[in-house]
Design a binder for these strands. Structure first.
Length: 417
RNA sequence: GGAGGGGUGCCCGAGUGGUUAAAGGGGACGGGCUGUAAACCCGUUGGCUUAGCCUACGUUGGUUCGAAUCCAACCCCCUCCA
C-alpha cells in the first residue's frame, strides 16, 4: 500500500486497528481531502457493553480525534431481529421494553470516548428503529430484497457455520444482514455517512451495505474492520472471575476494570497499549521495551490509561491508588468492594464462609467452604484453616473493618456499623 | 404432514435399570513456583443449617424396591421426503 495521506487511516494502521478495508486507497483519499462521517452499530442485547466492543469505540474515538465525524448507531431495530454472527443458538427474543432499557443503559459508555453535539465533527447517536420499524414488507422486498442473492447470503460465515453445525437458523435471523446493509444505505442518505467500521466478524454484513448502496444509489461507500483481539494465550478477551468485563460501572467497578488491564499478559502489553490507551506511540514503544518484572510498570500505565478513558481520570487514579495500597503495601484500599454489617450481628458469631458469600467473593456458601478447604481464604491476611471458623468483634482491625480475601487478588471489606 | 436422528452439569461430551452429584476434556477458581504475567505441577468445580439433607440429565405423567437409563404424551433442534 502506498503511503497513507490521511491522519485517520495512518493512526488506525499504526496502532493495529486495521484488519480489512474494502478500498484503503479510496478511503484514504476521502479522509485526506475533507471531513468524513463513519459509523459503528451496537445492538442492545444487554444493559452494558463489554471490552469486546471497546476496539470499535476506540476507532470512533480516533476518527473524531483526527477531525472526522462519528455516528453511534444504536440497534433498536436490529436487536429485535438478532444477529446470528458468532452464535450457535438463536438469540433470546428481547421485548421492546428490555431493548429500550438496554439502549438507555448503554448510551452513557460513549460519552467519555466521544464528544457529542451539532458541530461538524461532533458525534451523533441514532437509532435504526427509526427507519426499520416502519418498513413495509412488500415494498421493501421489491426495492431492496431483489438486490440480495440467497446463494451469496448462504456463503457468509454467520449463516454457513449454523448450517454446517446443523444448528437452527430462523428466517428472522437470516434477515439480519439485509437490515444491516440497509442501515448503511440509510445513514449514507441521511447523514452522508461513507464508512462503516466494525469487528472482523462484521465484514460480510458491511460489504453487503457497500454493495447495496452502489447498486441502488450509485454511491461509493467504504468498510473497515478491526481484528478479533485474542490474548497471546489464545483465549478471547473479556473474562474475569466475576464474568464479562463490562463497561458500565455498576456492572464492573472502576477498580475491577483497572485490575482487568493490570493483569494483562506480558506478551499483550504493547499491543493493548496501542489499541486501548491513547498514549503517544513513542511512549508506548519505550514501555514495550521493558522486560522482566519491569513490564509491570507498563501494565499499570495501561490500566490507568484505559480506566481513565472509560471512567475518568479521578476514578482511574483512585483504582491505581487502591491497588498500590492493597498489593504493594498490604493494606486495604478504599476502592475495594465493601459490605456493611451491624455490630450486633457480628457479636453473634456469624460463620466466615457465609460472609465470604455475602461479600460477593464467592457465589455460594458451598464455594466459600471449598475456598477455605483449599487454603485460599484469608481474614485480615491470615489464612483461614477451619471451615467452621466464625467471626467475632476480635476480628475487627485497627481501621474498624474486617478484610476478607479470596486468593491473592480478590479482596473485600466488611465495615462494622 | 411422513421417515430417521437428537435434547446430559458453565461449554463440549461419555453414560442404555442400582456402587451416578453423573467418566473424560475445555473453561473457571484456589494452592505451589513467580513479577497481581506466561508456562508448568497439584487441588476444587450443583445447593444447604455439609459424617446428613435437598435439587438435578428437554417437559409432564407412568412402570419399578430402585430410572439420566424402560414406557406414554407433549415441547424443541437436525437431516431427508411431501
Amino acid at each position: 500500500m502506498p503511503k497513507l495521506r490521511s491522519e485517520f487511516l495512518r493512526v488506525l494502521t499504526e496502532r493495529g486497528f486495521v484488519h480489512q478495508c474494502t478500498d484503503a486507497e479510496g478511503l484514504d483519499a476521502r479522509a485526506a481531502d475533507g471531513t468524513i462521517t463513519a459509523y459503528v452499530g451496537y445492538d442492545c442485547t444487554a444493559d452494558s457493553l463489554h471490552v469486546g466492543h471497546l476496539l470499535s469505540i476506540m476507532m470512533l474515538r480516533w476518527l473524531q480525534q483526527t477531525g472526522h465525524r462519528p455516528i453511534v448507531l444504536m440497534g433498536g431495530g436490529t436487536t429485535k431481529v438478532g444477529d446470528p454472527s458468532g452464535r450457535d443458538e438463536t438469540r433470546q427474543l428481547l421485548s421492546e421494553a428490555q431493548i429500550d432499557a438496554n439502549m438507555a443503559s448503554i448510551k452513557a459508555s460513549f460519552e467519555r470516548f466521544l464528544t457529542f453535539g451539532s458541530g461538524p465533527t461532533d458525534a451523533i447517536m441514532v437509532n435504526n428503529a427509526d427507519w426499520l420499524d416502519s418498513l413495509a414488507y412488500i415494498p421493501f422486498l421489491r426495492d431492496f430484497g431483489r438486490h440480495f442473492s440467497v446463494n451469496r447470503m448462504l456463503s457468509f460465515d454467520s449463516v454457513k457455520l449454523r448450517l454446517e453445525r446443523e444448528h437452527a437458523l430462523s428466517f428472522l435471523e437470516f434477515n439480519y444482514m439485509i437490515l444491516q446493509a440497509y442501515d448503511f444505505l440509510e445513514l449514507a442518505r441521511r447523514h452522508d455517512c461513507v464508512l462503516q467500521m466494525g469487528g472482523s466478524d462484521q465484514w460480510g454484513n458491511i460489504v453487503n451495505g457497500v454493495d447495496l448502496a452502489r447498486r441502488i444509489d450509485q454511491r461509493e461507500l467504504f468498510g473497515l474492520t478491526c481484528p478479533l483481539i485474542t490474548m497471546s494465550s489464545g483465549a478471547k478477551m473479556g473474562k474475569t472471575a466475576q464474568g464479562a468485563v463490562w463497561l458500565n460501572g455498576d456492572r464492573l467497578s472502576p477498580y475491577d476494570y483497572w485490575q482487568y488491564w493490570r493483569n494483562t499478559e506480558d506478551a499483550d502489553v504493547g499491543r493493548f497499549l496501542k489499541l486501548f490507551a491513547d498514549l503517544p506511540l513513542d511512549e508506548i514503544a519505550r514501555l514495550e521495551r521493558l522486560e522482566g518484572a519491569e513490564i509491570n510498570e507498563a501494565k499499570k500505565i495501561l490500566a490507568t490509561a484505559a480506566t481513565a478513558l472509560l471512567h475518568g481520570r479521578a476514578a482511574a487514579d483512585a483504582a491505581a491508588q487502591t491497588a498500590r495500597e492493597t498489593f504493594e503495601h498490604g493494606q486495604a484500599g478504599t476502592d475495594l468492594p465493601t459490605i456493611e454489617m451491624a455490630r450486633a450481628e457480628l457479636e453473634q458469631g456469624p460463620a466466615a464462609f457465609a460472609l465470604f458469600c455475602r461479600s460477593g467473593l464467592t457465589a455460594s456458601n458451598g464455594e466459600a467452604r471449598r475456598l477455605i478447604k483449599g487454603g485460599g481464604a484469608r481474614i485480615n491476611d491470615a489464612p483461614v484453616s477451619d471451615e467452621a471458623r466464625s467471626l467475632s468483634t476480635d476480628d475487627i482491625n485497627a481501621e474498624g473493618y474486617i478484610k476478607l480475601s479470596a486468593g491473592k487478588k480478590r479482596h473485600a471489606l466488611v465495615r462494622i456499623v
